[in-house]
Amino acid sequence: MRPLIELEQVRRVYLKGGEPLVVLDGLDLAIGAGEFVAMMGPSGSGKSTILNLVGGLDAPDEGRILVGGEDLGALSPAELAEWRARHVGFVFQSFNLLPVLTALENVELPLLLTPLGKAARREQARFALEIVGLADRMDHRPRQLSGGQEQRVAIARAIATDPAILLCDEPTGDLDRHSADQVLDLLERLCREHGKTILMVTHDEAAAARAGRIVRLDKGALVAGSGPA
């Protein structure tokens, strides 16, 4: 079966101080639908760049990125934004919730991009918060929540539109062990019970061990785990 996410000969070069810095150099990576993949490697190895490329937030200098058979390079910025809203949910290390909105409103935010009506949006946001176990915190602002709760709200927001792919950039990086375990339990459950394909960047071996597969990067190239398990 064809993988859900395919990176073919992807090269990404940034300019740093006027000098080219090769972050990814001819990288090939395939991730199957419903996989939970942890991506590890030293800082600057290109992990977050891969997340941004797969999420359509960045574009490769060379190579192709196919998601569900669709070449992201062929989409205009507006089409890419629309595609992202339908297919991808992001979970960031620092949660990235809007501080002026309540938990429920933060989760409802991506649903504004769907054709759902107000009541349906609210219902779906409540459901997402129930999934992450925060139905009783929906009217709290981010600053009224613990780090673990904030990250679970962020996950609820990521799954609110029911995307196929979750891209998690060090989701447990700012959390204590207990909260990190809760978040990882949740991600595991989302993969197992809801069929989400999860690509998670982490520095934490214990977190990576919760994934079905670990890919390791070094200096812009994969050193282990390039294809679906």
Partner: peptide
């Protein structure tokens, strides 16, 4: 700036 980045990452157009 960060809030705008969040909105864009969620799929809100420019």
């Amino acid at each position: 700036v960060r809030s705008m980045g969040i909105l864009k990452s969620l799929g809100f157009p420019d």
